[in-house]
Design a protein around this nucleic acid. Structure first.
Lengths: 351, 351
DNA sequence: TTGAAAGCGCTAACAC
DNA sequence: GTGTTAGCGCTTTCAA
């Protein structure tokens, strides 16, 4: 029984014709929605197999009003933290049968804006954005109704869903840990010149809280600003710190990559970590578990973050049909605060 | 002039009604395909703006037969090499206006098969797969007609497009470099028990070629197999090598992550790199540029790989319409061999 | 240059 | 339990 031409692909109609039933029946078999008689089902399934039927998802999406695809917009996948998070978001989405489309913003304002304004509108049912450059105004001005969840930056009172950890508290705890080692000069790498960089601002605030609580003076030279969170930025900032008359004996980095860049500079300079300088990071990326020394870090509950983001989107998108779009999270965004913990490793241990 | 209700979104018909023209005219304006009178255009554009029109991509895709979306199926984004490559593929695709949907296979055969069999067929115009577990038979048995490009594993004589570097030669060159340091016992980390692991096999062959050419004996104990390419696997393999009566004085790793795991074990054991053991990897991931010592590695031309993959897909997918699908790369796959170079860094320099 | 209408493949209301 | 049919929003002949 030779298979008919496959070509571009068989449609429901083709299958129906071959099985000698109606399109509806085939659709029922494919979707398993309605009851269909065993005999009929068998006929249909044979035709389905013979024609190697595959549903045309574009058609299904057009009809259903939903696509089962969400977009994840990140600065870039080359940052391990982003990659690890992307992996988890993709996993959480897969559990709902959703596919994930990645948009790279490089942290650039215009790219983030384009994403917000519906670059892929109605191709995606929802959007998870990790914003770097856009702020409250841009979000408020959004006309695209696609449900949105923000990661990693709290936009105060924003009418938008949001998932993050308590950055201020995490930074405070990490700083307290450094101070508890007996270090009174504690530097910080990761401050930003751009005051809109919300996450960095919050972490800086936490760092300062800890200094203050310990009665340590604030010294702006101990907080050299960075442009981004790459290893090179951490390395450069660390060089600046080492040039000070009195360099810090401990440094908190707002990103593990910054810490790894800084670590490289310290070791190259012949300094011992943690004996001469203790070092802590943020993110708990896998690299830090294998660096020498291993890296003390604030470990956000990434799994929780990913799941929460997907769940919030699911709540916006709603059950069936195209309802729920109008909401778009507009009615007062919900905030989910994922947990975090300080993971103490060699870069601060036994110092 | 209050904006009409936006709700779910305006369609071409709505815009046409508002502008007092036909749907066709609006479509022409939106797509810029046909000439349209300035006056008409202006009317239409105003209506477009007022209604905040966004094309429904599902409908467009259904009609055009193409979606402008490709899938990139990788073991996982948490491997830096994959993440770096994904970034480049996304960039190359973006230049063509394509979006990229990421599928995570975790290197599992069933997941890779599902992807091959059209998990997202007709939602994506093409598929780039980095196979780990599937082999020639599975590819031959494929019924899904979606254009396919394979990364990183050459499937001999397979009827499928393929992009890779010359793995055998690269491994030979790297091994020669290690031998040139005067090391006569050269180990290798990354061999696989599974003979289908093509890339590992090719690299192992290159390693052996180099040993043979240098007149060095082959010692299977110097090639402990690994299960995957994570740091932990490299660490474990390195421990095994250190337990030998006569441990190697140089080690080639088939992946930078393996090398970083191995490095950690060496340093923890109090050994110096490269003085006691020289170490080289594969992939040139950013981590290796910031480890201490920095990592000598085979650097594949990732940009070329990414671009070639996208270009091959573009060639399959063809110009317009739904033609080209039938090809699916079936008519004798093309192979693109991207370049590579050995980047010598501290982990082997001056040893 | 613009309009009318067919139809991409699917789903779901409505008949039988 | 199954068939008929009307669209989802878009592109694109074919006419005017």
């Amino acid at each position: 029984m030779p298979v008919e031409v496959i070509g571009v692909g068989a449609s429901l109609k083709d299958v129906a014709a071959r099985a000698g039933v109606s399109v509806k029946t085939v659709s029922n078999v494919v979707n398993g929605r309605a009851r269909v008689a065993p005999h009929t089902r068998e006929k249909v399934e044979r035709a389905l197999a013979e024609l190697a039927y595959r549903p045309n998802l574009s058609a299904r999406h057009l009809r259903r009003g939903r696509t089962g695809v969400i977009a994840l917009a990140l600065p870039g996948l080359d940052a391990p933290y982003s990659a690890e998070l992307a992996r988890l978001v993709i996993g959480a989405a897969a559990e709902r049968g959703w596919a994930v489309l990645i948009e790279q913003t490089d942290g650039l304002a215009d790219r983030e804006l384009r994403v917000l304004q519906g670059l892929r509108e109605r191709l995606v049912d929802g959007l998870v954005l990790s914003p770097v450059s856009v702020g409250r105004e841009e979000l408020a001005a959004r006309t695209d109704g696609t449900p949105l969840v923000l990661l990693g930056e709290r936009v105060l009172d924003g009418p938008v869903h949001h998932v993050d950890i308590d950055n201020r508290r995490a930074a405070r705890e990490a700083t307290e840990h450094l101070i508890s080692l007996g270090r009174t000069r504690v530097g910080v790498i990761g401050a930003r010149d751009d005051p809109r960089a919300g996450t960095a601002r919050l972490r800086l605030a936490g760092y300062r809280q800890a200094l203050e609580a310990a009665g340590l003076p604030r010294d702006e030279r101990l907080a050299p600003p960075v442009r981004s969170c790459r290893r090179a930025d951490g390395a450069e900032a660390m060089r600046r710190l080492l040039e000070l008359d009195e360099p810090p004996r401990a440094v908190l980095c707002f990103d593990d990559l910054l810490a790894l860049g800084a670590l490289r500079v310290l070791l190259s300079a012949g300094l011992r970590v943690p004996e001469d300088v203790a070092l802590a990071g943020f993110g708990d990326i896998e690299d830090g578990r294998y660096s020498t020394p291993t890296l003390t870090t604030v470990s956000p509950d990434k799994d929780r973050i990913a799941r929460a983001a997907v769940e919030l989107l699911a709540a916006c998108i709603g059950g069936t049909g195209r309802a729920g779009r109008e909401d778009g999270g507009a009615a007062g965004g919900r905030d989910v605060e994922a947990g975090h913990r300080l993971v103490v490793r060699e870069s601060t241990a036994g110092a």
